[in-house]
């Protein structure tokens, strides 16, 4: 029942009202929602900044200990930039703490989302892009400024890096959104999703390039390549960070971004498929 209603609502809506305007309104709403969470934003910025100092000192100590000018492909300046930008991007891609969908599944409010004329994956993604826009003006900028004041950072040498980084960060948001959506959607089948959340928590923090640059493991090239190709995690943070610190040529970094784009497509495809299965599952649970 729900599934049929949902499909018909989405079909008829497209004819009555321009979809682009709906989606634009959702993006704006996502942005504005987060402008009201000023205290929480400030608290997160504080925590990211503390971790920025922590990780930056550790990475620089590793670089100093190696006795090399270039460690795993990064100069000390590149490592410092990598570290501070990674703390800034945590908020932009929002690795942790997104339970909007999961909460609505648990409370049953999700039924109202399914009856809306916009597909849930589309509407949640639109809202999330608005949120990411807000985060890039707040949670990304402040740690970068603090990092630049306290440490010697790498300034991009090529102008192309700026637009490419913007695109790469955007794709990082989409890939991360896809992962979060799936983790939350597990709630359609499991009543308690905390276990799935934990799996995501360590997958994302260890394999996304947050705890350390994945290139530190380059002694095991099969492992690094495997992570890039077989998991979405490096596309979330490692990719935009490598683009920003210009690790490699323009051609190599374009390849990295192309890989991200592929993962973004795959993740959204899986989200759509899972949501379709979930529409049916909801009927079995009694709606």
């Amino acid at each position: 029942m729900i599934a049929d209603l949902a499909t018909s609502a989405r079909r008829s809506a497209g004819r009555q009202y321009p979809r682009t305007r709906t989606i634009a309104a959702l993006v704006v709403a996502g942005f504005r929602r987060y402008t009201t969470y000023r205290q929480a934003t400030a608290a997160s910025i504080f925590t990211n900044t503390v971790f920025g100092y922590l990780r930056c000192y550790v990475l620089l100590a590793a670089a100093a200990g190696s006795g090399l000018a270039v460690t795993a492909g990064y100069t000390p300046q590149q490592l410092a930039t990598y570290c501070w930008a990674s703390q800034g991007l945590i908020g932009v891609v929002m690795i942790w703490g997104w339970t909007d969908l999961g909460d609505r599944i648990r409370s049953g409010d999700i039924v109202a989302d399914l009856l809306r004329p916009v597909h849930p994956v589309t509407s949640y993604l639109a809202i999330d892009l608005g949120r990411a826009g807000h985060a890039s003006l707040t949670r990304f900028v402040v740690p970068m400024v603090v990092g630049a004041i306290s440490f010697d950072l790498h300034t991009p040498q090529r102008f192309a890096t700026y637009p490419l980084f913007a695109l790469s960060a955007l794709l990082g948001v989409v890939v991360c959104f896809g992962c979060r959506y799936l983790v939350n959607a597990a709630g359609f089948w499991l009543l308690d999703v905390r276990g799935v959340n934990l799996v995501w928590l360590f997958g994302s923090s260890l394999l996304a390039g947050l705890a350390f640059p994945l290139h530190f493991l380059s002694e095991w090239p099969w492992l690094v390549t495997g992570l890039w190709v077989l998991t979405p995690f490096p596309s979330i943070l490692q990719a935009p960070l490598d683009v920003l610190v210009e690790r490699g040529s323009v051609g190599q970094l374009l390849g990295v971004v192309a890989g991200q784009a592929a993962w973004a497509g795959v993740m959204l495809g899986i989200c759509w498929y899972v949501q379709r299965r979930a529409d049916r599952k909801l009927v079995i649970q009694g709606g």
């Binding site: 990475l59 100590a61 590793a62 670089a63 200990g65 190696s66 006795g67 795993a72 350390f212 530190f216």
Partner: peptide, 8 residues
Amino acid sequence: AMFRVTKT
């Protein structure tokens, strides 16, 4: 992982 690139 830090010790993949340095000894100390």
